[in-house]
Structure formats: structure tokens, C-alpha cells
């Protein structure tokens, strides 16, 4: 699997992501500076978490105008796989590669804690190593993770089975208490129409080593390696 991690100024979870990818694939990902414009020959492009441009203006808004975005759009148009986590998810929505927007958390405070995610479908390149309906634990850390879209868009996402993960209780129930940031319909992550672009707020890349408290996030990367290995 040829993977690259795109680094915008202010991104800060690029090393976490590189560790997760290397742990699962055995290969170091290519680190791509946001002024580069050629992403050809890659299987997976990852936009990691952080505070690109300090979250000034709007989370992800400035990064979405960066030179590298043209190459990312071209990669998507070629049918390439893209994973956007946290700020990466925000950037993908700002760039129009995924629908909806991430608003300020409902409680208006930054939320850093473990959450539980339910896998809504296990037949994508990202979830092949989970079972449908499986619940896994993941750290999350964001101030603006409250997923919003109009009802028509939400209905369409659900109708097309494009919700990737939902915030749930450890038993798998979509309760309000499990949905700490107030996301519409407990949505934690969504796919593009071709299921090859995934955006999610939590950080499975920070839970791939038993020393750090567990390996719940590892199947996501193992699944990608299995699906995208040449």
C-alpha cells in the first residue's frame, strides 16, 4: 500500500498517523507538504488531525484552498482512497469532497476522551477487518466535531448507506449521552458516494498499541492494508 500523509501548517497528528500506518503496513508513509501538487501513484492519501491554519476563520477552511487540494481532488476523481481524520474530516467537508459540516461541540467545550463507535457497514476498504454492528473504542479530541447537514442530506446519506460510524454506548446503543458533541443522528464518520473517501472525527490512529491502552483502532488500518495492498 502506497500511502501519503498531507501536512498543512498547524497539523499536529501527522506523526500519530504515520506510526499507525507503519505499524500496520510495515512501510513508512510519504509525508507531503501542502504546497506539493503531485499525488499520482498513491493508493491512500491521509489528511490527519490538528489545527491547520490555527482553525482561524473556520476549521479547515483555509487548508481547503491550499495548492495540494487540486492533487487531492484529482486523486479522488481517479477513484483513489482518502482518509480524513478530525481536522482532515473538516477539510474534506470544506473542500466539498464530503457533504455537511462540523460545528462547534454542542456543549461548547473541547472534548478529549474515549468514545465508542459502531461500524455501520463492514464492506468498505476502511472497515473490512471489523464486523457490521461491531463497537470499538477510540480516543477523540476536538472542539468542532458536531456533524451537521440538512435533513435531505442526512436522509440521503442514510438511504445510500454512507454513514461509516456512529457514536454509541459500549453496548452499541445510539443514545444522546453517547453523542457528546451533539452530532446529527450520532454520526461520527461518513463516506463519499463511491465509498472511497472516509471522514471521521475520532482518532483510531491513537489506539493501535496495547501500551497506549488498546488496539481497537488497529483493524481500520489493517483493513486498509489488506484492501489496498498491490
Amino acid at each position: 500500500m502506497k500511502a501519503a500523509i498531507v501536512v498543512f501548517p498547524g497539523i499536529n497528528r501527522e506523526r500519530d498517523m504515520a506510526i499507525a500506518l507503519e505499524t500496520c503496513s510495515g512501510q513508512k508513509p510519504r509525508m507531503v507538504w501542502h504546497k506539493e501538487t503531485d499525488l499520482s501513484g498513491l493508493d491512500l492519501v491521509v489528511i490527519p488531525g490538528g489545527f491547520s491554519y490555527g482553525d482561524y476563520l473556520r476549521c479547515g477552511a483555509m487548508a481547503a484552498q491550499s495548492p495540494v487540494m487540486g492533487a487531492i481532488r484529482a486523486h479522488a476523481a481517479r477513484g483513489g482512497h482518502i482518509l480524513g481524520v478530525c481536522n482532515g474530516f473538516q477539510i474534506l467537508t470544506e473542500a466539498g469532497l464530503l457533504p455537511g459540516a462540523l460545528l462547534r461541540n454542542a456543549g461548547l467545550r473541547f472534548l478529549s476522551m474515549d468514545c465508542h463507535l459502531r461500524v455501520e457497514r463492514a464492506d468498505t476498504a476502511f472497515t473490512g477487518h471489523y464486523q457490521t454492528g461491531a463497537v470499538f473504542r477510540s480516543p477523540m479530541a476536538h472542539g468542532d466535531g458536531n456533524y451537521f447537514a440538512d435533513d435531505g442530506t442526512l436522509d440521503r446519506l442514510e438511504g445510500e448507506n454512507r454513514v461509516a460510524f456512529r457514536y454509541v454506548t459500549p453496548a452499541g446503543e445510539t443514545t444522546a449521552a453517547a453523542n457528546r458533541n451533539g452530532s446529527a443522528r450520532n454520526i461520527a464518520g461518513i463516506y463519499s458516494e463511491n465509498l472511497r473517501v472516509l471522514g471521521l472525527m475520532p482518532h483510531p490512529e491513537d489506539l493501535v498499541d496495547p501500551l497506549m491502552g488498546g488496539t481497537d483502532g488497529k483493524p481500520l488500518f489493517d483493513g486498509l492494508v489488506a484492501a489496498l495492498a498491490a
Binding site: R15, I19, A20, F110, L111, M212
Partner: peptide, 16 residues
């Protein structure tokens, strides 16, 4: 208080 601080960025936090 802790829940408002990112304690895991870097991926090296063994005990939070």
C-alpha cells in the same frame, strides 16, 4: 478539567 485537554496527541501517552 482533563476532558478539555488533549492528552493523547503524539500517540505516546501510556498513562493519561
Amino acid at each position: 478539567v482533563w476532558d478539555q485537554y488533549d492528552s493523547t496527541v503524539g500517540g505516546q501517552t501510556v498513562k493519561r
